[in-house]
Amino acid sequence: MSKAKRYNPTKTDAQIIKKGSLLYFFLFPLFLSVVIALFGKHYSAFLINSVAFLLFFGVIFLSKIGFAQEMDYKKAKLTKAPKVPYKQLSAYLLGVSTLFSAYIAGGVALIDSLIMSGISILGYWLYYGFDPKKDKLENFGDISADVVLETLGEAQDKIADIKRDISTMSDTLLKDKIEMALERADIILVAITEKPQDIRKARKFLIVYIDGIANVTSSYNSLDESDISQDTRNRLLELMEDVEIKFKAELERLKANSQFDLDVNIDLLKEQIRG
């Protein structure tokens, strides 16, 4: 296998992120104050403390989404900056929660509460940072960034669908062939990610071939495997071989394009040196 990396920008699940444990630590005293207020029959304090607890819980919830977004952004080679700045929103909510908890629930003087609120926003910004703002979209030529991201995303979704479909296949030979083709498809996606200008040339591959395999695997899955005749199976195997050859050719073509670009640039530099 070549050294090519897989194109695998799966979305990070906000729930599994460990970052943000400090915020959980802050929930503990509020939780205690809710329980103590309840047992002490201070119902108004119980209500207010519960609101403060929920506000801080909201901060954690928003922060986790923000952290997940940031991780996806860092992982992806081509992406746009997050549309909703969740980390920034949670910093402001932290300010509001701090003010509420100190001034309304805790009876701290307003000016002190406001200062604490401001410091909490500053602390959040310093400790966790705010959301990334810059789009990671360079060297696109005349192609719209949305087209590139959308096409890559669609291809990736379709590949994920095919992978899910073939996971239940019991025909190992066919499964291996499809997996091999998908591996090549992954490599092609990486090549396009590295040189997005090629997306126009590779569009047919991305739309027609991957879509075709997705259709074949999904209709294959809708049938009982014992109902598939030997003849159909052979045709399928042949088809997958053809697909693999096509994918290989596509990759070669993309490589050749890069080679051509290099040649053009060398010639150009030569001309400039001579001139």
């Binding site: 104050s33 701090t98 805790g106 909490s120």
Partner: peptide
């Protein structure tokens, strides 16, 4: 400012401000 200082300052700020705010309701009950 280097990132470690940012983290340390951020941590202290959070601990001071949010820490005081979340313990205030608890203290108010006693």
């Amino acid at each position: 400012m280097s990132s470690i200082y940012k983290k340390v300052f951020g941590f202290i700020f959070l601990l001071f401000s949010v820490g005081s705010a979340v313990t205030a309701p608890l203290l108010a009950l006693f």
